[in-house]
């Protein structure tokens, strides 16, 4: 059975696209904090835990929310859905924040609410909690988005029947630079059952992942 990308989110340069359509762009936004707050407000996402998350958590949460809110992922058993994400800087953005709290012994205030986010896979945990995803999960680090690595890893999960639906992609934040590319992947048979939407599913492979992620660069 072949797998298809049936929805995707692309966030780059404070611009957000879902399934190839522009969803959010404001020229006057200069910081990641302003961007993510404005996007959260515009899309009327109501999830109080959002405010506790670090930047990587917020970006991953919103990117997944925009993509999954129109998907009936609950139709899959939770243990047959998975998340496989990757990025370049791991949790360095929050590592620097935690390090600031311990640099000065006279002003020493490490906090569990910051420290817990000094792992890149916490964003996977946030997405799993929100969507009840209980199957395979992995966080991989690569210098730049490696479509072959992600396609290979996720295709293998499908071929072992460990997942029937899988969220995968790239989620990167460092300071005010942010980039997200998340794709929802499912089997062909399941795609046929979904209602016709604005986005025509594309085959899930390294080539299509790369094309979708880099469409803004052309």
């Amino acid at each position: 059975m072949r797998q298809f990308i049936t929805a995707y989110t692309l966030i780059d340069g404070f611009k957000c696209m879902v399934n190839g359509r522009l969803l959010f762009y404001q020229e006057n936004i200069l910081t990641f904090a302003d961007f993510i707050k404005a996007l959260y407000k515009q899309e009327q996402v109501n999830y109080p835990k959002f405010y506790k998350m670090d930047a990587l958590g917020k970006l991953g949460f919103i990117a997944s929310e925009l993509l999954l809110r129109n998907k009936d992922i609950k139709s899959y058993p939770p243990e047959l859905t998975g998340v496989v994400l990757s990025n370049s800087s791991s949790s360095l953005d929050t590592d620097i924040a935690h390090n600031e709290t311990i640099r000065n012994r006279e002003h020493y205030f490490p906090s569990p609410s910051v420290f817990v986010y000094t792992l890149p896979n916490i964003v996977i945990g946030e997405i799993c909690i929100r969507n009840g995803i209980k199957g395979e999960n992995a966080f991989l680090v690569s210098e730049s988005f490696n479509s072959e690595l992600i396609a290979g890893y996720v295709t293998d999960l499908f071929s072992r029947e460990l997942v029937k639906g899988c969220l995968c992609g790239w989620i990167e934040v460092l300071g005010n630079r942010c980039e997200a590319f998340l794709a929802w992947v499912e089997n062909q048979a399941d795609v046929a059952e979904t209602k016709p939407g604005p986005f025509n599913p594309v085959p899930f492979d390294a080539e299509h992942l790369k094309l979708l992620k880099n469409q803004n660069d052309r």
Binding site: I124, G125, C128, K134, E136, N137
Partner: peptide
């Protein structure tokens, strides 16, 4: 070998 997620709490 396999992995799973609790989908319950981050810490």
């Amino acid at each position: 070998g396999a992995t799973t997620n609790d989908a319950n709490h981050i810490s």
